[in-house]
């Protein structure tokens, strides 16, 4: 490890390429912490947005008009507003409406103060999940509507209930149809997590910003950031393609 650190320090002295995240323990820790936060934020939002998409698409097929209208309104609201504006709105406008008290130790004293119940990380999860979820609703709807009417009729003829048909026939087929579109949206979601820096979520862009401000190595950190996101998205795409292949039905969709 020391050898690697020395090599990068030498690289800085000889070429001026300053990668503090390799040889400076403080910067390295910050960077890895940012990377971890980005991964956690992405994974949580991926899961929630898919769940929101599935439930939303199911409600869109409901018999009653009210749940359909609610889902339509939700999709319109979240799809028509920029995610950065949503994030600011949630954190600064909605955040103060839900307060809690905390005890903070200031030296020997205890300082009791009001603080928002949800942290910036929570609001980022909520905002990003609902944002990506709105698109997922539409993506799943496209998959559901592509399931042949005759297949559903066949299931009805077998005496399956509405829920059984949705769970065992429509959803498995719809999932396979809409996977490429879902892939696209989830890739976008991972990239959109960078917006959370605006409400001080210590994710990768936030940490990198702090590192390049302290170490004045803006071009180096920009390059590192770019490659890290290429890597992160590549892992996601690889996993999704494996999944796509594993779920392939012989003869379906050709």
């Amino acid at each position: 490890m020391d050898g690697i650190e020395a090599w990068f320090l030498d690289l800085y002295h000889t070429t001026g390429i300053n990668l503090t995240i390799v040889y400076d323990a403080f910067d390295r820790e910050r960077f890895l912490w940012g990377l971890l936060n980005t991964v956690i934020l992405s994974v949580i939002c991926l899961v929630f947005s898919v769940i929101i998409g599935i439930i939303g698409a199911w409600l869109l097929g409901a018999r009653h008009a009210i749940p359909r209208r609610i889902v339509q309104a939700y999709v319109q609201f979240f799809r028509n507003t920029p995610p950065l504006v949503q994030m600011y709105f949630f954190f600064f406008a909605l955040g103060p409406m839900f307060m809690t008290t905390v005890e903070r130790h200031v030296g020997q004293m205890v300082f009791v103060s009001e603080t928002p119940l949800l942290t910036s990380f929570h609001w980022a999860v909520i905002s990003l999940s609902f944002f990506a979820g709105a698109f997922n609703v539409e993506i799943f709807r496209s998959g559901i509507e592509a399931v042949p009417r005759s297949t559903i009729e066949a299931a009805e003829a077998l005496g399956m209930s509405r829920w059984q048909i949705y769970r065992d026939v429509i959803l498995p087929l719809a999932f396979r149809i809409c996977l490429p579109a879902l892939n696209n949206n989830l890739v976008n979601l991972v990239k959109t997590t960078t917006l959370a820096y605006a409400i001080a979520v210590p994710e990768l862009l936030y940490m990198s910003n702090q590192i390049w401000s302290d170490s004045v190595n803006v071009p180096e950190m920009m390059t590192v950031l770019l490659f890290v996101y290429v890597g992160l998205v590549a892992i996601l795409v690889f996993a999704m393609q494996r999944w796509e292949r594993a779920m392939k039905l012989p003869g379906f969709g050709r």
Binding site: F92, V106, S113, T115, P116, T119
Partner: peptide, 12 residues
């Protein structure tokens, strides 16, 4: 933003 966050109690 930072002053708003201070007033809202996000930080001490």
């Amino acid at each position: 933003e930072a002053l708003a966050a201070l007033q809202q109690g996000t930080c001490v």
